[in-house]
Design a protein around this nucleic acid. Structure first.
Ligand SMILES: [Mn+2]
Ligand SMILES: [Mn+2]
Ligand SMILES: [Zn+2]
Ligand SMILES: [Zn+2]
Lengths: 137, 137
DNA sequence: TCCTACATTGGACTTTGTCTAAGTCAAGAT
DNA sequence: ATCTTGACTTAGACAAAGTCCAATGTAGGA
């Protein structure tokens, strides 16, 4: 259980009612909401929260490294509070469902020095695609 | 050299002036244009080509597997005619430059059966991120 | 309690992409 | 060579996702 709210308090993050509900919505692992979904859930607790505030807050959480931004395709970005355990994503190409997966080995190390073209490579993101059991039946 | 136009002729693709210029713009490997960039280049040769036609043509090329759609981030998708040699992409997190890279091993095989959750996994896309030599200096 | 730097708001705006109805045309048939 | 027709193209409206801004509100320190 990744308690995002605790982590933010420790950082001395300025806590407003809006930021609190956003952090509460993004609680738990295996959460991959779009900004609109975060807004919908947050509105249930705090009806007057503005869409712009949700975007602002999400951007800041990403900037400070407490939330990961996941772009699976050309669709809306998804926000993932599970930053403590490095993982990758498996996406259903029909319905868009996302699962966390843990491939073997470090994907970064699969890129030889001769294939780096002088870049300082810091990250490798793997997206697996397939059809989920639900869509297959 | 991947001659997209030749491949399309072999397929008996209905060839119009618009489709021809789109295919000509997407000639050569290491090409990763956005739809707007394709439209801009195509307009230089055929000024009256419509934006919708570029989108239609790109979608069809992707559907028949002659062009790959690359979504590096939440920005515009990029179109890549290099479908013959399987490869991955290295993206500069500052300027967005893209390079083709060839990691060792098959990324798909790094996902154990126990991590597939009943999905029929068909594809693994790896995106490497870092700072290019140009942006580092 | 008061101050103020920072957060929130609503709405306009931008970017990227989709859709449709009407017009045009490539290519096979005659 | 001309005809025919289904497929292609077009302009512009529309939509989804996200950004920006000036005005307003407020958390937390003094
Ligand atoms: Mn995840
Ligand atoms: Mn490529
Ligand atoms: Zn599915
Ligand atoms: Zn760069």
């Amino acid at each position: 259980m990744s308690d995002l709210l605790d982590r933010l308090r420790e950082r001395g993050w300025r806590l407003t009612a809006q930021r609190r509900v956003v952090a509460e919505v993004l609680n738990g692992d295996h959460v991959h909401y779009t900004a609109d979904e975060v807004h919908a859930h947050a509105s249930a607790r705090l009806p007057e929260i503005a869409r712009a505030t949700v975007y602002n807050t999400l951007s800041e959480l990403v900037a400070i490294g407490e939330v990961i931004e996941v772009s699976t395709d050309g669709r809306a970005k998804r926000y993932d509070p599970n930053v403590r355990h490095s993982h990758q994503h498996l996406v259903c190409s029909r319905c868009g469902t996302i699962r966390d997966v843990h491939p073997q080995g470090d994907p970064l190390s699969a890129l030889p020095e001769g294939e780096r073209y002088g870049f300082t490579v810091s990250d490798a993101t793997v997206t697996y695609r397939g059809v989920c059991p639900n869509c297959a039946s």
